[in-house]
């Protein structure tokens, strides 16, 4: 029987890697073989992880998303998540260095209207929020980004 920490390390390595269908033989061998399509099943978990974290970044940087467009923002956010996974069980403060990451993000050089000045963000001063499809209460209170369900926002 595989030690639990090895199973969890293998899952974490797969989930932290950028979105894509590849699942190592090692990780596949840890799953019940009678269930078909191990790669597609594991992809649900990876999509969940990335969608939730990209959504959190969208909520923290709405102006940037409007500026660069949804597709580019999502692409940059996915790259950021893969190299800077969260270190806290709350998402408060996640994305603190996303602005700095964007400034150094290589694809930006082909995007002519991207500003050269530091991108401002409010992430350091308020909690990470998650925008629901319905507007939040008029006082401006908004919900932070955790829920124990799959987010229906396919990233890949």
């Amino acid at each position: 029987m595989l030690p639990l920490h090895e199973f969890q390390a293998a899952m974490a390595s797969y989930l932290s890697s950028p979105p894509g269908p590849d699942v190592s033989h090692h990780l596949k061998s840890m799953m019940r073989p009678s269930l078909r399509s191990v790669e597609r099943r594991l992809a649900v978990y990876k999509n969940n992880v990335y969608a939730r974290l990209v959504d959190a970044l969208r909520d923290s940087f709405p102006a940037v998303e409007r500026l660069v467009g949804e597709d580019f923002f999502r692409y940059a956010a996915v790259q950021y998540v893969s190299i800077t996974p969260p270190k806290s069980p709350t998402l408060l403060g996640y994305g603190k260095d996303f602005a700095r990451f964007l400034e150094n993000f290589r694809p930006r050089r082909i995007f002519p209207i991207f500003p050269m000045s530091p991108i401002s963000s409010s992430v350091t001063s308020k909690p990470i929020t998650r925008q629901t499809r319905f507007p939040s209460a008029s006082s401006g209170a908004s919900e932070t980004a955790t829920a124990c369900c799959c987010i229906r926002l396919p990233v890949f």
Partner: peptide
């Protein structure tokens, strides 16, 4: 579970 070491994956695994 959702955490391995200091990395929090924010899903229920």
């Amino acid at each position: 579970w959702s955490r391995v070491g200091e990395v929090c994956l924010h899903d229920l695994l």
